[in-house]
Design a protein around this nucleic acid. Structure first.
Length: 570
RNA sequence: CGGGGUGUGGCGCAGCCUGGUAGCGCGCCUGCUUUGGGAGCAGGAGGCCGCGGGUUCGAGUCCCGCCACCCCGACCA
């Protein structure tokens, strides 16, 4: 392949809209072009990388016995009405009408379409288990696309769906898929973590996310150094700081706390550490106008965990200052759980406190020496705090650390959610109809490309992991403008490597040395060969690995074998 | 969706306050020189100054409306 054919137009400066390295480098190296917010063209060079990832993913899917199919991007509204998601999904679902006014949407995911397919084609448990996948363009009308390809509206995704008679079979496929995702990321050579995750709006009971570790990641993942525990911070929990509540010693007292509204203010004023104060957050209840969530003063609410409480509306809605006022004589800054007329749910840590301090539900006053079961009823207890770095790991030993990650994969045990709603049943061995057990498994192919760059770049450009580099070898002829000999030598070398099955690209643009050398580094091709008058004279080829500090001379004779060895070594 | 910002040639930007010939650097085309880390000189092409309306003799510049894009937050299988 010749560079002149690939529409590479490198940019010396990054376009102003790009902030993070992967976005800047993808634009500068000519991998993508933006068409609209979150919508991109993949240029030839970028597409080669995308196809590399696709290839690896396809192989690993086939390896675990998944069967490929291709479903439509445009999906009829009826299916979404059946599953209930036409109303649930919200504006992220791009809806459209055909010329007859029939409603459709662009597929953000394919549970409906595949469930519809399977209910019409699978009747017997003998056809199970079954795992199907596709690699297809998805559209989600994100409120705020950003970071280039990482959070695009249109993106390439591998989505797989599995169908089972029982949960044991689902568990088995789930674990196989987990292993396959791990292999994909290992083959590409990315530093990643699989973490327990919230199931979000897709539902189901168990789910894991696969995160590529990167500073610019949008998610915080929590892990224990012994590897026994890893979770998204949205769902992460910690081992409680103590086993049981200390005995009460103090007695209830009401103190004036003028102008002290925050935990920090109160703590300072009364000389009580924040860990012995509680904060009371009022949220909209599912049955009651409000529910009080109690946290230790030094803890923060995890809205995702709290949103799962049956007593509160989901997603969680914190009451604003005005809404709180309407509830009675309550004012922000002095709310507490004592004599509150709403359900009180305490975080585990807050429930372990004795002699604590809280708002008195009278503006400008707080209570000290408060004790559960004495000054107020024992609360309902739940784990609703956001874990902190250094908390104790809930499994195994050690303390929790944080890292930033880019979510590239997410697998779910869906259970019967879709099969029940859409009446997808099979006959079991007794002839009885049973709803299908389902799993679904997403892997963001285009996002992996960006994540790979995010994790593998330097000041000069991209350093492609060998498994997904657009080319393995780039040949740069220096002085080719004036030398038919150099030109010819470069061409012959290119053809020879190509014949030998190496993925090689020749920079035939005949530009100045500096430009071609810089570009080769920007493009991130792992191996570079320079042909020049000097190399011709000495009958060598100058070799430099991307990222290496210096070059070395390789004898022209046997070059292919030498190169092959270096390619294998990676 | 709330807050902030930006729209001027392919990319990066100035010009707008104070209205009067649309400019700079990079890139692109031609020629000459140069040639191992983003060359020099000369010549050249390329612009509904985001869109619509208004004010004015005259609008890139002032006013009104809209749109697009970016950033922070909320949101997000």
């Amino acid at each position: 392949m010749r560079l002149s054919e690939l529409l590479v137009h490198t940019l010396r400066e990054a376009p102003a809209e790009a902030e993070i390295p992967s976005h800047q480098l993808m634009l500068r190296a000519g991998l993508i072009r933006q068409n609209a917010a979150g919508i991109y063209t993949w240029l030839p060079l970028g597409l080669r990388v995308l196809n590399k990832v696709t290839h690896i993913v396809r192989e690993e899917m086939q390896h675990i016995g998944a069967i490929e199919l291709l479903m439509p991007m445009v999906q009829p509204a009826e299916l979404w009405r059946e599953s209930g998601r036409w109303n649930q999904y919200g504006p992220e679902l791009l809806r459209l009408q055909d010329r007859r006014g029939r409603e459709f949407c662009l597929g953000p995911t394919h549970e409906e379409v595949i469930t519809d397919l399977i209910r019409n084609t699978v009747r017997s448990h003998r056809q199970l288990p079954l795992t199907l996948f596709q690699i297809q363009t998805k559209f989600r009308d994100e409120q705020r696309p950003r970071f280039g390809i990482i959070r695009a509206r249109e993106f390439l995704m591998k989505d797989a769906y599995s169908f089972h008679l029982d949960v044991e079979s689902l568990d088995e496929t789930y674990m196989r898929m987990y292993a396959a995702y791990s292999r994909v990321l290992e083959r590409i050579g990315l530093d990643y973590r699989a973490v327990k995750a919230d199931t979000g709006s897709i539902g189901g009971d168990v789910s894991h996310e696969f995160h590529v570790l990167a500073e610019s990641g949008e998610d915080t993942i929590v892990y224990a150094p012994d590897g026994a525990y890893a979770a998204n911070r949205e769902l992460a929990e910690a081992r409680p700081s103590r086993k049981r509540r200390p005995a009460a010693e103090a007695s209830l007292a009401r103190v004036a706390t003028p102008h002290a509204y925050s935990i920090a203010d109160v703590s300072k004023l009364l000389d009580i550490p924040p860990s012995h104060c509680v904060k009371t957050l009022l949220v909209k209840g599912s049955e009651t106008p409000a529910v009080a969530l109690i946290l230790r003063g030094d803890d923060e609410l995890n809205p995702v965990k709290a949103g799962h409480l049956p007593e509160v509306v989901s997603p969680l809605k914190l009451l604003g200052e005005e809404e709180v006022r309407k509830l009675g004589s309550l004012e922000f800054g002095s709310i507490g759980p004592v004599d509150l007329e709403f359900p009180v749910i305490a975080d585990r840590e807050a429930a372990l406190l004795a002699d604590f301090c809280c708002g008195a539900n009278t503006p400008g006053e707080h209570l000290t020496g408060v004790n559960w079961g004495h000054d107020l009823p024992e609360p309902a207890v739940a784990d609703i705090r956001l874990v902190k770095e250094g908390d104790r790991s809930p499994e195994g030993s050690g303390r929790l650390s944080f890292a930033r990650g880019i979510e590239v994969g997410h697998i779910f045990k869906l259970g019967k959610r879709y099969s029940t709603k859409m009446n997808a049943v099979v006959q079991d061995s007794h002839g009885a109809e049973r709803p299908l057990m389902m799993g679904c498994y997403g892997l963001g192919i285009s996002r992996i490309v960006a994540a790979a760059i995010e994790q593998n770049h330097d000041t000069r450009g991209i350093l492609w992991p060998p498994g997904i580099a657009p080319f393995s070898v780039i040949i740069i002829p220096l002085g080719a403008q004036h030398s038919a000999d150099i030109r010819g030598a470069a061409e012959r070398l290119h053809d020879e490597l190509h014949q030998a099955g190496l993925e090689v690209v020749l920079d035939d643009r005949c530009l100045r040395a500096g430009v071609m050398l810089k570009d080769s580094e920007l493009l991130g091709i792992p191996h570079r060969l320079v042909i020049s008058a000097r190399s011709r004279e000495k009958n060598i080829v100058e070799y430099q690995a991307r990222g290496a500090v210096s070059s070395e001379d390789l004898p022209r004779e046997g070059l292919i074998d030498t190169l092959r060895k270096r390619l294998m070594r990676q």
